[in-house]
């Protein structure tokens, strides 16, 4: 995937870490060539100009959890390509390419971790994998993560980066919205807290299900948060979008989230929430 700058926000994609992970990445915003380790230390924010880099799921996990604390949970096996779908490319081919490009099996990574020593169950979506879209595999992964959190009685942290339901799986993808809410019900029945972190982008079916049902909702600065994409709204309604529409700030001002947090403070902010939620010893 090429480096790309999103004009709406300051996000810039990191060159995909494959088998040959690049040592250096270029900031598209200011042109600075940055040593990747340095970038990691700086929470994937350009040390020169402050631009936000697009995080892969694994990079996001590294940026949030205590070092070496992440233990990945296996993703449940699911039938692949349930509709036998093909557009200009077959869905199987698209999956194979995404796997090769991202080194992931699917768009979700789930596991146990610690944040400031608080145990959590973590689920992170990866936008590079078919837009972080939710099909049956992602639905199962998010359900399994919540079931694990309910069992282990550790707060569930869900980092959203998704365009919505996966079109190639049709209504089966749509119904994953209900599945992940069934998982959410498990957390509620067990009194286990759920913290959502909405990042760029949090839209469509993922926002209109699990993404909107947290006990505590944080928005990363620079996030895009909305049910319908800005282009769809303009095309369908002819409405002119107000400045700052669907930004993290917009979400805060309209009462959709509890806090807007710069990336560099996200881990600290989560620690604060976990600290105040921690059960008495």
């Amino acid at each position: 995937m090429p480096i790309r700058k999103d004009k709406r926000e300051r996000y810039v994609e990191v060159e995909v870490s494959g088998p040959r992970e690049p040592l250096w990445v270029r900031c598209e915003a200011c042109g600075e060539l940055i040593f990747k380790r340095k970038l990691q230390e700086n929470q994937y924010v350009c040390p020169r100009c402050g631009a936000y880099f697009f995080l892969s799921a694994r990079e996001r996990i590294v940026s949030l959890v205590d070092p070496e604390s992440f233990r990945e949970l296996p993703l449940p096996a699911v039938p692949e390509d349930p509709l036998g779908f093909a557009d200009q490319m077959s869905y199987r081919e698209r999956l194979a390419r995404s796997r090769q490009e991202t080194g992931l099996n699917e768009a979700a990574v789930v596991g146990e971790a610690r944040i400031a020593d608080h145990p959590v169950t973590l689920a992170v979506l990866d936008f590079r994998f078919i837009g972080g879209s939710m099909g049956v595999a992602v639905g199962e992964a998010l359900y399994a993560a919540q079931a694990h959190a309910a069992r282990a009685r550790t707060p569930f942290v869900f980092v959203v980066s998704s365009g919505g339901a996966r079109v190639q799986e049709g209504v089966l993808a749509l119904l994953q919205m209900v599945k992940v809410v069934a998982g959410r019900e498990l957390l509620a029945q067990n009194g286990v807290p759920y913290i959502a972190v909405l990042t760029y982008p949090s839209t469509g079916g993922v926002l209109a299900s699990l993404g909107s049902l947290a006990d505590v909702t944080l928005a990363e600065e620079g996030a895009l948060i909305g049910f319908a994409g800005p282009r769809v709204i303009e095309q369908t309604t002819g409405e002119r979008l107000p400045p700052g529409f669907q930004t993290a700030r917009f979400a805060l001002e309209h009462g959709l989230v509890d806090q807007v947090v710069p990336r560099a403070k996200l881990r600290e902010e989560l620690a604060k929430v976990l600290e105040v939620l921690a059960e008495e010893p």
Partner: peptide
């Protein structure tokens, strides 16, 4: 709903 799409 917990199992939808996952069988087969």
């Amino acid at each position: 709903y917990r199992h939808v799409g996952a069988q087969g």
